[in-house]
């Protein structure tokens, strides 16, 4: 693939992410993206960029695909339901046909949905920061991990038990500990104990002046 083709593919993926494709074009790009490793990671990256534009907290990257891979593995382990679907659920051909009809009916009246990065004033203002924020968010995910904590491995091991809620699967990035802000489901009891620690555990020379402010500011912010 030469540079021009690649650029065109990127534009198509961008349009796909923005929900601007329909009909045969949609089907073709979906097929192409699903088959091409590079295009797929590009698709993920565009979604990440969109997420970061909307909220910095969504800027966790690199686990979507691991998660999908794990989800797939786990789904295969699930007991098979009595009714087996033989046909692929998403048939690009049929999407294309249906869409074509729909488009044919109302093409004139239909406005395509706006792109996430449409040139509206606010997005423009934010976009400059967002590229920095994306860099920051990605670098943090490496900083946030602690090296060689056995607890992390245990977390990963215990996540193999299906009885444990979904959170461990999302959390368990083997041998690493995730910063709390990226944790999706938090243990309310742990929050309680952390609050208790902040209240009665502030035996620090830095507690007054700044420790108290830090705790009062941080307290409950994560709840």
């Amino acid at each position: 693939m030469n540079a021009d083709e690649r650029l065109k593919q990127r534009e198509q993926i961008s349009a796909l992410v923005d929900g601007q494709l329909g009909g045969l074009e949609l089907a073709a790009v979906v097929e192409l993206t699903a088959a091409d490793e590079d295009a797929l990671s590009c698709w993920h990256m565009y979604h990440l960029v969109g997420d970061v534009l909307r909220s910095g907290e969504l800027g966790a990257f690199g686990r979507d695909r691991d998660f999908l891979a794990r989800l797939n593995t786990r789904l295969q382990l699930e007991p098979v339901a009595p009714r087996i679907v033989t046909k692929t659920l998403v048939d690009p051909e049929s999407i294309a046909n249906n869409d074509q009809q729909a488009l044919g009916n109302s093409k004139k009246n239909q406005k395509s949905p706006p792109a996430a990065n449409d040139p509206s004033f606010r997005w423009k203002l934010v976009a400059g920061f967002a590229s920095l924020a994306a860099v920051a968010a990605i670098s943090w995910s490496t900083i946030g991990t602690l090296e060689g904590v056995p607890g992390g491995t245990r977390l990963a091991q215990s996540s193999a038990m299906p009885a444990v809620a979904v959170s461990p699967v999302l959390l368990a990035d083997a041998a690493s500990v995730l910063p709390a802000s990226q944790v999706m489901i938090r243990d309310p009891r742990l929050d309680e104990l952390m609050a208790a620690h902040r209240q009665f555990g502030g035996n620090s020379a830095l507690q007054n002046p700044s420790g108290f402010l830090r705790n009062a500011t941080f307290e409950g912010a994560a709840r």
Binding site: R154, L171, A180
Partner: peptide
């Protein structure tokens, strides 16, 4: 249920 380690800021 779960043993583990977590970080929130410096905590």
């Amino acid at each position: 249920l779960q043993e583990g380690a977590m970080a929130m800021g410096a905590t």
